Simulated assay, not measured.
Amino acid sequence: MKRLLLVTILAITTVLMLGRNNCATGHEPATERNYRQDMRDFVQGISVYAKRIKPNFIVIPQNGHELLTENGEETGTLALTYLDAIDGVGREDLCYGYDSDDAVTPALEREHMVSFLDIAEKSGVEVLVTDYCSTQSFVDDSYYQNAARGYISFAADQRELDNIPDYPEYPYNVHVSNVTSLREAKNFLCLINSGSFPSRDAFLHAVRETDYDIVIIDLFYEDAVLSSSEVASLKIKANRGSRLIIAYVSMGEAEDYRYYWQTEWETDPPAWLSEENPEWPGNYKVQYWNKDWQNIIYGKDDSYLKKILDVGFDGVYLDIIDAFEYFEDQ
């Protein structure tokens, strides 16, 4: 009994001493990272920064739909601060492309995604779906299914998103009205890789000749930032209605062809740079909660987001939101 009492006293004393030491040094006891909340915080920070400069700036995170609820379950408590920070959510492979391109997404996976996307819609957050299919009947079905759910969609016939599809000849639900918000849009084009176009002028001309309500493109053509006049010229559809031009940003991975990449990182990488993505060579996982990485993306005059704002984009399309899955699996 005395031995048990002594052990108990020692245990209590140890806990108290650890607590005292933590207070004395200013360090909290180590806790497990909440990678999902880290990503929410990152997106929320981007939104606050951008909307302070341009109040109507549009923020659209792609994938990572589990962030819409606090526990990542479709029945969970809504992540209200996150929902308030975003204007839309992007989702790939909802109807086609989940297992392979031009293949139907399994019903179980589709319905799981829909349960979260409907949360977004009910919360006033627009849904943009990119399906990957090229068979014309699949393309038609993709547009039909997404429209029936109230989603805006794009059927991409190339996973690289480097072309304007020949089919359909005109954008789904094409119209001549002006589009000044996501709510007014009925279709979109995702054309984030311009390398298949022979020149900068050819790329810009091809986009101008379309009637899509929203066009998602890169800030750069090759290594040069698009100018404010070039971005402004893209905001008019071929049918003369106005539209939204959104900039693509990979915030969950660093890309070795971007302006911020330092050659010395290949041998002496910063602490926040993780391993290369084997599916996309040249793309590296990042500790996205790290302030040094976040400073590259937003918050400073030379940040990626400030460059986007400076040339007049209407919003930002944030990719690799689901990077939290990589770190949860480590």
Rank of each mutant, 00 (worst) to 15 (best):
E109V: 09
G72N: 02
I245H: 07
R33Q: 06
V43K: 06
T69C: 08
S134C: 12
S100K: 13
G299W: 00
E111K: 02
I217R: 04
R36I: 04
E121N: 12
L161E: 01
D84S: 14
G195Q: 10
L309I: 14
L94Q: 00
R20G: 15
R36H: 07
K307P: 02
E160D: 13
V225C: 05
N22K: 04
R149G: 08
P168S: 01
A323P: 06
D93E: 13
I216G: 01
D162Y: 01
D319Y: 09
F188S: 00
N34C: 06
A156Q: 05
E73T: 15
L10I: 11
I321D: 04
L204G: 06
D223C: 03
F220C: 09
E255F: 03
L273E: 05
G315I: 09
T77F: 13
P106K: 09
A156F: 11
V207P: 03
L5Y: 07
W280K: 06
I12V: 15
R36C: 06
S303R: 13
D213P: 01
I164L: 05
G90E: 04
S233L: 03
G26D: 01
K2A: 14
I217N: 04
G195E: 05
I217L: 08
R183W: 11
V15H: 04
E279S: 12
S196W: 08
S227K: 11
L204P: 06
L219Y: 02
R33D: 00
D218H: 08
A107Y: 14
E74H: 10
Q262M: 09
K291G: 07
Q44N: 12
T210F: 05
D157G: 03
V114Y: 02
E73N: 13
Y221M: 02
G90Q: 03
G241A: 00
D140E: 05
R149C: 06
Q262W: 03
D162L: 04
L226M: 11
E109I: 11
N283S: 02
V215R: 07
N187F: 01
G90T: 00
I119S: 02
D87L: 02
D302R: 10
K291N: 10
E328A: 02
Y288N: 01
D211S: 15
K285W: 15
L68A: 02
Y260K: 00
E70H: 10
Y98Q: 14
I46S: 02
I296L: 01
V225W: 10
F138A: 04
Q145C: 09
Y248P: 05
E328L: 11
T180H: 15
A271W: 00
L191G: 06
P198S: 14
K51W: 05
S274H: 11
D87S: 11
P61V: 04
E109H: 13
Y212R: 09
P106H: 05
S134A: 12
K306T: 15
E264N: 15
P198A: 03
L182Q: 02
P278Q: 05
E160P: 03
M17C: 12
Y288K: 09
K186F: 07
A148P: 03
L108G: 12
R149T: 02
D329M: 12
Q145N: 12
V89A: 04
G45I: 08
T77S: 13
D101K: 13
D201F: 14
N56I: 03
C95S: 15
R52S: 13
D256Y: 07
H205T: 15
N34E: 09
S242V: 08
K285D: 11
